[in-house]
Design a protein around this nucleic acid. Structure first.
Length: 578
DNA sequence: TTGTCCCCGTT
DNA sequence: GACGTACGGGGACAAT
């Protein structure tokens, strides 16, 4: 081990018995050492951590890595470093992460280690069954671990040589800072009111049982089985078929179908919808959260910045980004006594960005004057004055705005309006809405046209910060595939630009809160952020968060500006309570 | 145990 | 014949 000092780089990887650092254990820690970029790994060290066997050895190596200022390279190092810190108090920096480099290099592909190794290094998968990985003292794992050290190193060398100047900038200025922020978020976790949780849980469990009994009394089947439900509804009970399932060809009984059947007055469809509501809330959310919060009363989800083809973030274990807009559920997320949860949302971020992209003068004017585009659209499509627009009309207009901007056609709009907004439209009405919409915002269609030309010319699209998504289907002979590529070309830069703004603003906010306001971020949801702040700093924090969100530094770093102001609304209290 | 399908929550 | 984008996740069911 005395030779460590001649190395400048190290890759590190852990093998654990599972993904949960609060419950699972580390079986192995592997370290691969290399002298310079381009040279192979010179040495690999395997620590067998079963029952902490090689803990002393690991601590000594960690010490040497730090002393010699060896650059540490990881694949998804957020996971490994959080695990190591929690289990052994070992804190290691993430100097580089090949998963992030891979994302900077090519956005819309898999950034899993084996996929990147295959794609860029021509290596076929070395994966072993989960069963093997969980075994301690297993030579099979040690060989596997060798690959998990070697290929990240080779990928690092590949990306180091291959990334363009702009990709390096994305990596250093957007991806890596955001990744480190999400690591802090994951470590902090979000507070959940466990007392309230158990009450809501009890209530929802009871409701679920009641609703199930109503169904079981009529037909004693497994009401969670789509096949059995289909047989009962459309065969035995004789309800009309609305649509067929994609692959199986059976009549579908999904939520949209049930909604239509309910509208026709079938009681059974309403009973099933009621059951599904409680069943879903229980199994996917309420029943999970207590376990997730078992360690410290906080939930520590995992955020991904490399998984989504548009550059948005993903979230899992549990997915905070799909918590229902149901106050009984969302309000459970709050802050401890003496602290407050702050939610800061960008106001209509994507529509503002779309207006900017399209240079759509009417939309730009509305936003410059602090107007509300949903209301304006509602007035335009229904032909009344803005002050005559009701809340219901405004809601309809929301669907119009999002749907049509991203390339929805009239038939899709009929369904969308009904499913999401309870608005019944004929095909003709939908066509008329679409026409009126594009009359009102006349530059949108020419923007769509321009996007098609750009995607065709470049084989993809870039967002405002230059992040590129390849869309090879634009060259497909299949018309559907091609038009799909165009719609992605319209949607991606808008979503992606919004996401980069939000995560970059979040980095600034999180740093400021931690440094000066006894606070920290606890999560982000696409165009909003959630912060946990000591009560005495809440008013200051609100002001600072709004200031940062209105103009994140990333705009200056990339020389990006928008023709409309960016506006954020800030609220204080349990999540979803305002 | 793994893979496919359906379904459903969010944006 | 369909026809906004993008995910994570659970259960059923079949294949292994």
């Amino acid at each position: 081990m005395g030779t460590v000092s001649k190395y400048n780089y190290a890759t590190i990887d852990i093998e654990s018995t599972g993904l949960n650092r609060y419950k699972d254990d580390i079986n192995y820690v592997g370290i691969g050492l290399a002298e310079d970029i381009g040279s192979p790994l010179g040495k690999t060290i395997i620590c067998n951590m079963y029952q902490d066997k090689d803990l002393d050895k690991l601590l000594k190596i960690v010490d040497k890595l730090k002393k010699n200022k060896i650059k540490l390279i990881w694949q998804n190092g957020k996971f490994d470093t959080l695990f190591l810190e929690h289990k052994y108090g070992i804190k290691l920096p993430i100097h580089h992460d090949v998963m992030l480099m891979g994302t900077a290099y090519e956005l819309a592909t898999s950034h899993a280690l084996d996929d990147m190794a295959e794609k860029y290094l021509g290596v076929s998968s070395w994966d072993i069954p989960m069963k093997e990985k969980k075994k301690p003292n297993n030579p099979v794992v040690e060989k596997y671990l060798g690959c998990d050290l070697r290929y990240p190193w080779e990928l690092f060398c590949f990306f180091y040589e291959s990334m363009s100047e702009l990709q390096w900038k994305h990596y250093h200025k957007i991806l890596r800072p955001a990744y480190l922020m999400y690591r802090r978020i994951e470590k902090s976790g979000i507070y959940i009111d466990l007392n309230k949780l158990s009450k809501v849980k009890k209530l929802y469990k009871k409701k679920q049982e009641e609703k199930l009994k109503v169904l079981k009394d009529q037909y004693d089947i497994n009401w969670n089985s789509p096949q059995q439900v289909s047989d009962v509804l459309f065969d035995k009970a004789g309800l009309p078929t609305i649509k067929l399932s994609q692959k199986t060809g059976k009549p579908s009984a999904d939520a949209k179908v049930l909604k239509r059947l309910c509208a026709k007055g079938f009681e059974l469809s309403q009973q099933l919808a009621d059951y599904k509501f409680y069943y879903g809330a229980n199994t996917k959310f309420l029943n999970k959260w207590g376990d997730y919060a078992a360690y410290d009363g906080r939930i520590h989800p995992s955020f991904g910045i490399t998984n989504v083809r548009t550059g948005r973030t993903s979230c899992s274990d549990p997915n905070l980004q799909q918590v229902p807009r149901n106050p009984e559920l969302r309000n459970l997320f709050t802050a401890k006594e003496g602290r407050s949860l702050i939610e800061a949302d960008y106001s209509q971020l994507e529509l503002r960005i779309a207006a900017d992209y399209a240079n759509e003068l009417t939309m730009l004017k509305i936003y410059r004057e602090g107007g509300d585009i949903h209301t304006t659209t509602a007035a335009a499509v229904s032909g009344v004055l803005e002050d005559k627009v009701t809340k219901d009309m405004r809601t309809k207009a929301k669907a119009v705005n999002f749907g049509f901007i991203y390339g929805m056609m009239a038939p899709g709009f009929v369904n969308y309006a009904f499913d999401n907004y309870n608005v019944v439209l004929s095909r003709q009405e939908a066509e008329r809405f679409r026409q009126l919409f594009f009359q009102k915002y006349s530059r949108l269609l020419s923007w769509h046209q321009e996007v098609e030309e750009i995607v065709e010319a470049l084989g993809g699209v870039a967002n405002r910060f230059g992040r590129f998504r390849a869309l090879p289907d634009i060259y497909s002979s299949d018309r559907w595939e091609r038009s799909s590529a165009v719609r992605k070309g319209i949607n991606t830069p808008v979503q992606s630009t919004g996401s980069d703004l939000l995560i970059s603003a979040s980095v600034e906010v999180d740093k400021l809160l931690r440094k000066e306001m006894n606070g920290f971020l606890v999560g982000t949801v696409h165009d909003s952020m959630l912060a946990d702040v000591a009560d005495e700093y809440v008013e200051d924090a609100k002001v600072e968060i709004q200031r940062i969100m209105a103009r994140p530094k990333i705009m200056d770093i990339f020389d990006v500006d928008f023709k409309v102001p960016l506006v954020a609304d800030v609220g204080v209290g349990a999540w979803g309570s305002k």
